[in-house]
């Protein structure tokens, strides 16, 4: 077995160096290698398997800056026993890390184009590395458009950064919530309602989508209606995963293993299967 394969498949220890509360149920963990050896570099969209000693292992997208490889950043929503255990780690504690695994957002292929990011809920986490990458390599891309929908204002991730990104040149950040209160003066409506405010250049746009599957299907319909080709639309899929490397079989979706053929797929790959019920 190659050294790289061994490093990726073997659990190594990482030390939690920061835990930030993003919302009432979502936290961002920053970890550093605990045993010397540096982390494998990652590409935007890839994920790690994070292990809480004695509790369980979870696939979690990397939400940090790919240019800062000495640390790994994960944004985790506490929805079950294992995610709760993960977000309850305190700085200084150890967790296990394997990876990075999976395909990445095709940021190289998107050079010279507008980058349109459509994120729903926690789906913004695997897309944040794309924002970092585009802002860091600003001249390689034309416009950066981020459409982000969440359940309510209290569920919005990275609020400070969203405001900062919106002030960057040639960058449009449109945020919406499904339900707002009186203090929310931003947009209200599902993420698809933001499309009326957009002027897209369909032949010159790379669209990256991540969110609940139903939301992604509706967003794809909007993009297709506006003339984007299936190969210019990319989406990140979620399936049950136990191993991350194509061995456990859990993440299958038709011809694909979401862990190694995905999680990022082009819509051209997913088109025949996305609407098949219970595939």
């Amino acid at each position: 077995m190659s050294a790289t394969a061994e490093r990726i498949l073997t659990t190594t220890r990482a030390r939690v160096i920061a835990v930030e509360r993003e919302t009432h149920d979502t936290f961002t963990l920053t970890v550093a290698p605990a045993d010397g050896a540096a982390f494998e570099p990652f590409q935007p969209g890839q994920f790690s398997m994070l292990y809480v000693f004695g509790v369980g292992e979870l696939p979690i997208s990397i939400s940090g800056d790919p240019a800062e490889a000495e640390r790994l950043v994960y944004t985790v929503r506490s929805v079950g026993q294992a995610t709760h255990a993960l977000v309850s780690r305190k700085p200084g504690e150890l967790i296990g890390v394997r990876g990075p695994f999976g395909t990445s957002w095709p940021v190289k292929e998107a050079r010279g184009k507008d980058v349109l990011i459509v994120a729903g809920g926690i789906g913004l986490a695997p897309l944040r590395p794309v924002v970092y990458h585009v802002l860091r390599n600003r001249d390689d891309y034309v416009r950066l458009i981020l459409l982000y929908g969440a359940r309510s204002p209290r569920d919005l991730l990275y609020r400070k950064q969203l405001a900062e990104w919106g002030r960057a040149p040639d960058t449009q950040v449109l945020v919406t919530v499904d339900y707002g209160g009186l203090s929310w003066r931003g947009h209200v409506g599902v993420v698809t309602t933001l499309f009326r405010q957009l002027r897209l250049h369909p032949a010159e746009t790379a669209a990256f989508i991540c969110g609940p599957e139903i939301m992604m299907r509706y967003v794809i319909r909007m993009l297709e209606a506006r003339g984007l080709a299936p190969q210019d639309i990319h989406l990140s899929m979620e399936r049950n995963m136990k191993c991350g490397a194509g061995f456990c079989g859990h993440c299958q979706m038709g011809p694909y293993f979401v862990c190694k053929d995905g999680p990022v797929f082009s819509y051209r790959q997913m088109q025949p299967w996305l609407d098949v019920h219970e595939l």
Binding site: D25, A150, V190, T192, P212, I214
Partner: peptide, 20 residues
């Protein structure tokens, strides 16, 4: 029709802890 579709999506409460 657009409003109806958006409303249906909203009703699904996609980002809720127990989505769908």
């Amino acid at each position: 029709a657009e409003r109806l579709q958006a409303t249906r999506l909203q009703l699904l409460d996609l980002y809720a802890p127990r989505a769908a």
